[in-house]
Amino acid sequence: MESTVHHETRSVILRKLFISTFYLSAFTFGGGYVIVTLMKKTFVDQYHWIDEEEMLDLVAIAQSCPGAIAVNGAIVVGYKLAGIPGVLTSVLATVIPPFTILSLISFCYTAFRSNQYVGWMLNGMQSGVGAVIMEVVWEMSSGIVKEKQAGPLIIMAAAFIANYIFGVSAVIIILFCIALGVAVTLRREKQQKGGSL
């Protein structure tokens, strides 16, 4: 799939980036993992600005950095599409909706906390969020499975087992995977240089 980002002016890209990121942030409940799959649908499937493999790389970068994954994802996607102006645009659009909503809720926190209807609404939202997170896991893992490479499949399974069964910290798993990826890449480049001599 060829990216169409180069065929649009920067002002058009920034406008679409702001509107789409603002919309995703305003109507996405359940945290960063939910917004990731919606970003994929918008920037990969709808606008064709980024291909699916590159989106997975950007998500990996966003998750490996400190901070909220929604903001980190907006930063890497915005920078990929329009440089520093893209970063500022996407971060601003991502931050405005939750900042506004939380500011309003803070004024009425006591009423919200004791309201039975709000409690029912939140319980219903939890079920929907769980389903969306499952979709994120399915879409991201299916992309790795389609590559039919043993290495990434083994790493994915080992990371799941280490975290879910043995309770190994996600930070340790991420750092280990980063080190492993660097080692594999350096080895591959060394082999290519040796073969070209």
Rank of each mutant, 00 (worst) to 15 (best):
S20E: 13
S20A: 15
S20H: 14
T21C: 15
T21Y: 15
T21H: 12
F22C: 09
F22N: 09
Y23M: 10
Y23S: 12
L24K: 02
S25M: 12
A26H: 09
F27Q: 14
G30S: 13
G30T: 10
G31M: 13
G31N: 11
G32P: 09
Y33C: 00
V34I: 06
V34G: 01
I35Y: 05
V36W: 00
V36C: 07
L38E: 11
M39L: 14
M39N: 14
K40T: 01
K40V: 01
T42R: 15
V44Q: 11
Y47C: 04
Y47N: 03
Y47A: 02
Y47I: 02
H48N: 10
W49Q: 10
W49L: 10
I50P: 04
D51I: 02
E52S: 12
E52Y: 03
E53W: 07
E54F: 08
E54H: 13
E54V: 09
M55D: 00
M55Q: 02
M55E: 00
M55R: 00
L56H: 11
L56V: 13
D57K: 14
L58P: 03
L58Q: 03
V59D: 01
A60S: 09
A60I: 03
I61H: 06
I61S: 05
A62Q: 04
A62M: 05
S64D: 01
S64F: 05
S64Q: 03
C65Q: 12
C65W: 06
G67V: 02
G67P: 01
G67R: 01
A68P: 14
V71M: 04
V71Y: 00
N72M: 01
N72F: 02
G73W: 07
G73R: 06
I75R: 07
I75T: 12
V76E: 03
V76C: 04
V77E: 04
G78F: 12
Y79V: 05
L81S: 06
A82R: 10
I84D: 09
I84T: 14
P85I: 06
G86S: 08
V87Q: 09
L88H: 09
T89R: 07
T89M: 08
S90P: 01
V91M: 06
A93Q: 02
A93N: 02
A93L: 03
V95I: 14
I96G: 08
I96H: 08
I96E: 08
